[in-house]
């Protein structure tokens, strides 16, 4: 009888070990002559760069050139910068300019470069109950949403999009509160899903919206084109001074890679085929 139990355990052990032996055959990492950097780095980034698929193209190109492995953690910009402060991320790719400036001023980051931009959009149901469709003034549009008590979903998660939203409310001199103002506390994709389900308005970055629209969205762009809705992305190499284990060389190489030459060309080309326009505009692209 005891044999049976041990046989089960033995069987499970064998299965496990066979699986783990297989797992040790790693994905091939190509090699090439370029300045030597650490063999891996952790990139904390906003979800829009991953969810849009940009990083699936950008990261392999960088890995190939520098023969280093990039571990991408997609979270909100706020959490990404918090990971930088804790020393858990070596490089950041975020879109929260004011918070980035503060991050640099406090000495958490060593190098920061502008990478690309697109725009934020105010999206909402087709019926447009608040009647803001076609407005080009984001401040006036949000004010009208508040005046008409139209449902609006806030990310409320300290992401780049959330801090942009708060800055618009501030400009509108409105403190959003009430049953129409819904704080989801979730990522952009989840928030868009929620907006679809309950026919609400929300503020979204262009890249996530376009890549989401193809799949499941009945939302429409109601406000765009205000220069307040400008959405710049920056790359930061976290300073090695506070945590000597930071893989600074690799992080710096990554920041340079995406803000120059090949990285910029990849960003420029990304999304044209699938969405008819590029999802991000590189700041430093020369054909």
């Amino acid at each position: 009888m005891n044999n049976k139990l041990s046989r089960v355990i033995l069987l499970l052990l064998i299965v496990l070990s066979v699986i783990s032996i297989n797992a040790c055959t790693k994905n091939p990492s190509p090699s090439k002559e370029t300045p030597a950097v650490e063999e891996s780095l952790v990139l904390a980034t906003t979800t829009s760069t991953q969810d849009s698929g940009l990083l699936d193209i950008l990261i392999p190109a960088f890995e190939k050139e520098y023969n280093t492995e990039v571990k991408v953690i997609a979270v909100g910009s706020g959490q990404a910068m918090e990971m930088g402060k804790k020393g858990d991320a070596d490089a950041l790719l975020v879109h929260s300019p004011a918070a980035e400036d503060q991050f640099m001023a406090e000495g958490w980051g060593k190098v920061r470069k502008d990478v690309m931009y697109n725009q934020f959009l105010i999206v909402g149901p087709k019926a447009d109950p608040a009647g803001i469709s076609g407005m080009t003034d984001a401040v006036a549009a949000l004010k009208k949403l508040a005046d008409t008590n139209s449902k609006f979903i806030s990310r409320a998660d300290k992401s780049g999009t959330h801090s942009k939203e708060l800055s618009i409310w501030k400009a509108a001199e409105v403190t959003p509160a009430g049953s129409w103002y819904i704080e989801s506390g979730q990522g952009m994709g989840d928030t868009l899903m929620m907006a679809i389900e309950i026919n609400a308005y929300t503020l979204t970055d262009e890249a996530t919206f376009l890549s989401f629209k193809n799949k499941a969205s009945s939302l429409h762009v109601v406000v765009q084109g205000d220069k307040l809705l400008f959405n710049p992305y920056g790359a930061i190499a976290v300073s090695p001074e506070k945590y000597p284990n930071i893989r600074f060389k690799a992080a710096e190489a990554f920041v340079n890679f995406i803000s120059e030459g090949e990285g910029q060309a990849i960003i420029h080309a990304f999304g044209k085929k699938k969405y008819g326009k590029n999802l991000f505009t590189p700041v430093n692209y020369r054909p």
Binding site: D51, A74, G189, L192, K215
Partner: peptide, 24 residues
Amino acid sequence: GGNIRYTTRVLTTSIVMETRQGNF
């Protein structure tokens, strides 16, 4: 784990990610 592709991505974290991207 961080849901890192090829390294720490498991079934449950991929489900979350696919859902977030609208790939129901």
